[in-house]
Design a protein around this nucleic acid. Structure first.
Length: 502
RNA sequence: GCCCCCAUCGUCUAGCGGACUAGGACACAGCCCUUUCAAGGCUGCGACAGGGAUUCGAAUUCCCUUGGGGGCACCA
């Protein structure tokens, strides 16, 4: 009720062209909204992961709520945490302008999980199952009970201690939460909550040998931390159903959960395991390889955090799958970048040319930004004997088009003679139009610095860029005239560019 | 095999029983502007998966079919 009006006024920065996010369900029932982002620090985050973070951040801002960042690192063996990932994820989040109030690491909270595991055993909500996993699956698929399920509480506790104290070997026992044996969804029947994992954890070593599984740790924490609203992918819908049994035993109320659909980006792999495999096999150079959809790769290529946020907000919280196109992301980014990006000249596959027919000296200035004359301009002098550099592709185009003319941007018009020389034709822009000369970018010989531009497919465009970029703060995203937006970085003594989009 | 979720232009999205001859963005086409193949302006193209049902009236509710996604881990 209060939402539709309330949202507009509370929102910090109104984004006019944005679909407003729908109100959070039952927001009025909670004195303070509390959201969380719960990544697994087994690697960096990508566009798909950032959705939960950005959406949660946005709602936290709208409702002036609390945002908790929770690292879910409870699987030393199967999803081993990467020590660098904790910081890398935080860096990505900061870059995305996601702000959090609390930070929790699940591997610090094992005693809490142990406490609640024992409570659950004592109230009969869980049991320690020592059946071989294949045997258990067989029974459960036939809706049959496992012999461990109905053992008395004392025996359960004794078995639990055995797990904790090392009497039980890895794989020898698991704690299961009792649900409904003949639940129509086999995925929900008596789900595992605790298991033994003796592999050293990178943060806390071998201090613990029993680790909670996702549904147990996540559910316990969501309640204990006071999370009111969970935003996560639809793949967690079944997990919610599982966790609700545990909440029922404890007499807790399950948080409001919003499950949005899968987010894909056209032609790009967003699966962490596939990315990792690609890096290990040498297909990708690193986690920020320009071909990837990781946040670090997008950053490296010159996508702005605001562009990612707008995209995520546009996609919203619908439960259907969405396949975003690079065109869409690029268009948003272009609108952000275009008004603020300095223009420089870049020549791919440069070709030096002598100028013929020059009878005076020309002074040209090429604006740093066409809409901001006050930003200054690049000035060059061209006179007798000057040589210039153009792109090979523009030279070739004079042969494939009907006219042999080119206009050198802000300079004059030339004719490419059949012998391949470059002859002064006329000075004015009007003449250029009348002879159908396309305007091309160019550089005086000696004014360029070598640069290699890495394209989104990892191929490279070697060329020359106006040496003026060397005086700029780098890395910085520029628009190269007639080429596109490129993030220019120093690489040792040379320059390297990453192509964002045209 | 069993279970859950989803379904509007090529893509993203608005729509929550009458204001829909279905709106916007991107892409595409044309025109304008422009000394960038950028940005900007205008115009155009273009969708309610199919079938039943409810209703005076359905993109909007219900059912079925089809299609897509996810789950059935001692992963998260």
């Amino acid at each position: 009720m209060a939402e539709s009006l309330g949202l507009a006024t509370v929102k910090e920065k109104p984004r006019p062209q944005q679909h407003p996010l729908p109100p959070l369900p039952n927001a009025e029932r909670y004195p303070r909204i509390h959201v969380r982002f719960a990544p697994n620090p087994d690697s960096v985050i990508h566009l798909g992961n950032s959705r939960a973070a950005i959406l949660s951040d946005e709602y936290a801002k709208i409702y002036r709520g609390i945002f908790t960042l929770r690292f879910e690192d409870t699987s030393p063996s199967i999803k081993p945490p990467q020590p660098e990932a904790y910081e890398a994820i935080k860096e990505d989040l900061k870059w995305l302008d996601v702000r959090w109030d609390n930070e929790v690491i699940q591997s610090d909270r094992l005693p809490v999980y142990y406490d609640y595991a024992e409570r659950l055993l004592r109230i009969g909500g869980a049991y320690i199952c020592t059946c071989p996993v294949d045997r258990f699956r067989e029974l459960i698929s036939e809706k049959k009970t496992c012999p461990c399920r109905d053992l008395p509480v004392d025996e359960q506790i004794a078995r639990w201690r055995g797990m904790l104290e090392g009497e039980v070997k890895k794989g020898g026992a698991v704690m299961r939460v009792k649900t409904i044996l003949d639940h129509p969804n086999p995925a929900i029947r008596d789900w595992p909550a605790m298991r033994i994992d003796t592999k050293p954890h990178p943060r806390i070593g071998t201090r613990y040998r029993v680790w909670p599984l996702y549904n147990f740790a996540s559910g316990i924490d969501d309640h204990l931390l006071g999370i009111t609203h969970i935003l996560r992918g639809k793949e967690h819908e079944v997990n919610m159903a599982r966790q609700k049994f545990m909440f029922e035993y404890f007499g807790w109320e399950y948080p409001e959960a919003i499950h949005y659909g899968r987010l894909k980006i056209e032609g790009t792999v967003l699966s962490k395991s596939k990315i990792r495999a690609g890096i290990e096999s040498g297909i990708y150079e690193s986690w920020d390889d320009p071909r990837l959809g990781t946040i670090s790769a997008l950053r490296r290529r010159g996508f702005m955090p605001e562009a990612i946020r707008r995209l995520i907000l546009e996609v919203g919280v619908r439960p259907s799958e969405a396949t975003i196109s690079w065109e869409n992301l690029s268009s948003i980014n272009r609108k952000i970048l275009d008004p603020v990006s300095k223009r420089y000249i870049f020549l791919a596959d440069p070709k030096p040319m002598s100028l013929e027919g020059i009878e005076k000296e020309f002074e040209v200035s090429i604006p740093i930004h066409p809409d901001h004359p006050d930003w200054g301009s690049r000035r060059f002098k061209i006179g007798l004997g000057s040589r210039i550099i153009i792109q090979s592709s523009d030279l070739i185009s004079t042969k494939t088009r009907k006219t042999p003319y080119l206009r050198l941007m802000n300079l004059f018009n030339v004719e490419i003679t059949p012998s391949g020389s470059c002859r002064f034709h006329s000075e004015g822009i009007a003449e250029a139009r009348s002879i159908g000369a396309p305007i091309i970018q160019w550089l005086p010989e000696g004014a360029g610095t070598p640069i290699s531009v890495v394209k989104p497919d990892a191929s490279r465009d070697p060329g020359l860029v106006d040496s003026g970029v060397i005086g700029e703060a780098l890395p910085q995203v520029f628009q190269f005239y007639r080429y596109g937006f490129v993030r220019v970085c120093r690489s040792g003594n040379s320059l390297i560019g990453y192509f964002a989009h045209s």
